[in-house]
Amino acid sequence: MPAAHIPIHAIKGRGAATRLAHRFSRDERNAFDDGWGTLEEGAAEAEELPPLATEVRFEDVKSVLNENDSPDISFDRSLNPYRGCEHGCIYCFARPTHSYLNLSPGLDFETRLIAKRNIAEVLRTELGRKSYRPSHVAIGTATDCYQPIERELRLTRSVIELLKETHHPFALVTKSSAVERDLDLIAPMAAEHLAAVYVTVTTLDGELARKLEPRAAAPHRRLRTIRTLAEAGVPVGVSVAPQIPFVNEDMEQVLEAAWAAGARSAFYTVIRLPWEVAPLFKEWLALHYPQRADRIMARIHEMRGGKDYDADFATRMKGSGLWADLIRQRFEKAANRIGFNRERIALDLSAFRPPGAAGQGSLF
C-alpha cells in the first residue's frame, strides 16, 4: 500500500509545523487519509485555531557554567539562561536538547520554554569558589539570551549585573534588539575590555527571515542594533550564520550592511542538521520551498559526506567538499575586501575579583 500523503501547514509566528516526536519517544502518531475527507477537514480546522501560546516553566539549576573543550569552538565556558527559544529558528542546532526534557524539538522547543530562575545565585557560587579561574564566558550560545521572555524575567540582565560586579569578561550572541536595554551595563564593561556582542544577521531579506526566524527581530532592526551598540563603544561582530545553499544567498550584502552599521568582526557557519533538526528542516522545505527542496538537501549532503549531518569536529561548523569550499571563499574574499577581522577583540581576564555573598557589597 502506498504511503498516505500527510499535508502540513505553516503556523503563523512559528518555525516548526509539527510537534515532531523526539528520538526517545516510545511511539509516534501521524494523521492518515481514511477516505472520508477527515484529513482535509482537520487541516481546515487547524488553520482556524488561535495562535499557539508560549508557556514558561521555571527550573532551579545546580550548575550554570558549561565547560567546553571542543577544538572547533573559540570559548572555554558558556551559559544559557533559557532552554528552548521563542524565536523559532527552524535551523537551530539546539532543538534536540528538548528531547531530554521529554518535549518535542519541533513546536515544543518554541512554545514550552524553561527559565533558570536561580541562574544568578548559582553563578555567584561558582565564581566565588577558591578554585575558580576566570576565562571567557559566552552567553546565549545555544538559545537566545534575549528572546521575548527576557523582557519580564530579566535573567540575562541578572547575569550581566553579576559579571559587572566581579569584572568578569563575557561575550554574547543574539538576534534581538532587546540587548539595547542592557547598554547601561554592557557599555561601561566594554570600555574596560570586559564585553563584546555579536549580532546574527542571517539575511537582509525580510520575507525569508520571517520564515526562517519567525519571532526574531527583522534584519533592518538587527542592523540598527549593531549601530546602537557600536556608537556606545561596544565591540560588535556579525554572525552570518548559518549559510544554507539556495536559501540565504546574500552573504556579501549582509557583511557590507553590517560593516556600515559598525560591526568590525565577522564569522559564519554552514547549516547543521543533528538529530531531529533534519526532519524538521525537511518539513520546512516542503512547506516553503518545495520546488527546490531536493536541490537544497543535495548540496547539504555534499557538504556532509552524503549525510544530513556529520558531527566530526574538523568539519561540523564549515562542512567539507566543493560547495563548502565555495562558501568559505565567498566569506573570506568579502570579509577581506570590506575590512573585517583585522583586529582581534581581546577581553581582559586580569581584572576579575571574586564576588561577595549575595546582597553583600564590596568595601573596595
Rank of each mutant, 00 (worst) to 15 (best):
P2G: 05
A16Q: 01
A17P: 01
A21N: 06
G35T: 07
L39E: 02
L39H: 06
P51R: 14
E59T: 09
I73A: 04
N80W: 10
P81Y: 00
R83K: 08
C89W: 03
I90R: 02
Y91F: 15
A94F: 10
R95Y: 06
L107M: 03
T111I: 02
R112V: 14
I119H: 11
I119R: 12
E121M: 09
V122N: 09
E126H: 08
R133S: 14
R133Y: 05
P134D: 04
H136C: 01
C145W: 10
Y146V: 11
P148F: 14
E152F: 07
T156W: 02
V159E: 02
I160G: 06
E161K: 14
E165Q: 14
K175I: 06
A178I: 13
L185H: 10
A187P: 01
V197K: 00
V199E: 01
T200K: 06
K211T: 08
R215E: 01
L223Y: 07
T225F: 08
V238K: 03
V238Q: 02
V240S: 01
P242F: 05
Q243C: 09
V247T: 07
V270G: 02
V270Q: 03
E276R: 11
V277E: 05
P290R: 05
P290C: 07
Q291A: 13
I300T: 13
K307V: 03
K307S: 11
Y309L: 03
A311T: 02
A311Y: 03
F313E: 11
T315D: 00
G321T: 08
D325W: 12
E332T: 15
E332C: 09
A334D: 10
N336S: 15
F340I: 12
F340Q: 09
A346L: 10
R353L: 13
R353F: 13
P354T: 12
S362G: 04
